[in-house]
Write a protein that binds this DNA or RNA. Structure first.
Lengths: 207, 207, 207, 207
DNA sequence: TATGAATGAGACTTCATTCAT
DNA sequence: CATGAATGAAGTCTCATTCAT
């Protein structure tokens, strides 16, 4: 039990450090220090630094499994209601796992012949697959504008979420200038959701 | 003259390597080899590896200076025409400087107390400032919907461009699946522009 | 009983590994894995890696005790017959314990202030002592040429045996080239014995 | 020039250390200390510890090139005279390069898929090839007994030389006991030569 | 008694940089 | 001005051993 805690601690500290400093920019010493364990433990537990990274991916792999399924199967909600729920869910999950996403952003093209890259690509395809189904359902139901390409509709979601989340400092500065108040993370996420919904509504509505 | 060429060569090779492997992931030896110069040259010319990075930023700093000004001052074009030009220009410039953008993406939060971060922040603000003016002009002219927040309108532009460009492999795979043909870079950029324009039109139009 | 088996297993696996990879080149983890026991067992049972090596020597120490005595005391056989028996016996025993001999070969001069080196030296002296007696008996009996130095006569025995055994791959290659057939270990040992006997006969015969 | 000296120093110190402690048993730190250079120099000059070992082999590779050729082509000397010269030459060369030979003895079967093992095998074949020619010449000339197998005649030479040289301590102890005087290295080598010649004479003479 | 977990020491190697020329 | 040589620091990983159970 205690061992599992230590492994978890290492995993989480490493995730954070990799996210903020990059994989190459983070030494195992730093990780060990942050997790308050002996340096040798990282090799002992994970084999190597690279395998530790891989383990982080495995550890986080199931974070956005299939809650979208429920949404697809739900027949009582309109597609517009579902859209709100989807956006909220997506942005929340993304925000919750922002460390992982930052790592992906940084290291995606690192050694693209390794397991990790295959892993990331698979994840991307899975996520897209789910969300594509959602948009297609709305279009088939006749609620969403059929003229809009689904891949690019999807792109809006990670595109804007990522940009907001990974430019938080910039967004905060601007919003402070424009509204007089620096938003906290929750406030920023809320605005992201609101504007995503607004944009989707305008793009998908049938005039 | 020859010295300047060597410095330039180093700068460009370093930019590419930093973009693909990250700052920490790239050794000065690699850069020296790629630029076909002695290892000592890098310290000799730039002082240190970090100062070389800074120099890359300076070297690329002026890439999106003020062509937007012309657009703002132009009175013969409609805001919709200007929008098309802006999107084309933005995406083109972004694509041309994707190495730099990838570096920014990676290293933005590296050591955020250094000159580099201030530099990046300044750049972001400048870019936003220009594009904000453009949207505000369209709204003031009564051509764009005034209800939409300008900051989030702007967010769409870098958000979608970045996402497309830095997920090129994913986009290519999906597009190949859906259309039967893998797009090249130019084709992908064109689609990015087209859909950005489509989205902006739907978001900004006044019903 | 089971404990004894485990110790034995460790001993034998370690012997083999030390023989093929050397003492420093073999980790306790490898030994533990090969013997299918926990890593800690080795320190637990033997105290340390070095003491394990020592234990191997003790374990094998009695392999060539005193069968030569019988030969010396035997009065019905001629010295020439005895020579054949001695050579067969020596080469057989050597071959049976080749792992140990390889370790001695490798590590003889390791830390020559330790118990191991004293041990090896004692063994060498004992072996030589026995065989010297044999040659001296043959000379005293007037069957062997008295002009030949006994120490150097002895040298022939380990010298040729070791060279053949520890250059098995080379011998095999050459013999294959010369006879068209690669000899197996038994065949090679037989040839070693035959030629040793031939050489001894020619050296020791009285013209 | 000075650099070459440093490389040479490293090479020679490493050779000696590898010979006495084995490859795995010798750390690059030890080598660096012995050669009075920075630890990093070894990687800098040779790439790695293993490549350093390889370099030692290359450095020593030409030590017994073709002096035997002269002997073969010489028609004025009898085969018996040539034999004396050959034995002297062989033992001298072996003694001069005993460090290398000890390394070969130890590490021959280390990683027998590597360049080093191929290298050693090639060397062995070359040496044997030369000496085989010598014995065959003597047999063809009718001076040496044709009944004796040449491969095993050859075996006597490295077999006894190695055994004497690598059991110097034992030989010294015995010789001191038997003659009252501990022989130095030169004395031991001389005895090795003398007895080799004696043995060869008895084995090869035609009665 | 036996063992999985843990550790300090030290292994080899690469790093960015500096020095002497 | 330019560079090959050199270096101290730090990198990751493995080592034999010990500890707590």
């Amino acid at each position: 039990m205690e061992t599992k805690d230590k492994k978890l601690k290492i995993l989480e500290e490493a995730e954070q450090l990799f996210a903020s400093q990059g994989f190459s920019g983070t030494s195992v010493r730093e990780i060990a220090k942050a997790a308050d364990v002996n340096v040798a433990m990282i090799s002992y537990y994970f084999g190597s630094k690279e395998q530790l990274l891989m383990e982080i991916f495995r550890y986080r792999s199931d974070y956005l499994k299939t809650q979208v399924d429920d949404l697809l199967n739900n027949t009582s909600l309109s597609s517009w209601d579902k859209l709100d729920i989807l956006v909220d869910h997506y942005v929340n999950k993304f925000s919750d796992n922002q460390h992982l996403h930052r790592i992906i952003l940084r290291e995606a093209n690192m050694n693209c012949n390794t397991e990790i890259c295959a892993f990331i690509m698979e994840r991307k395809k899975t996520h897209y697959g789910m969300i594509r189904q959602f948009f297609e359902q709305g279009q088939e139901r006749g609620e969403f504008n059929k003229e809009v390409n689904v891949l690019w509709l999807y792109t809006l979601l990670p595109g804007m979420t990522k940009h907001t989340l990974f430019n938080q400092d910039f967004m905060a500065v601007i919003l402070e200038e424009e509204t007089g108040k620096a938003p906290d993370n929750a406030e920023l996420m809320q605005q992201t959701k609101d504007h995503l919904k607004q944009f989707y509504r305008k793009i998908l509505e049938i005039k």
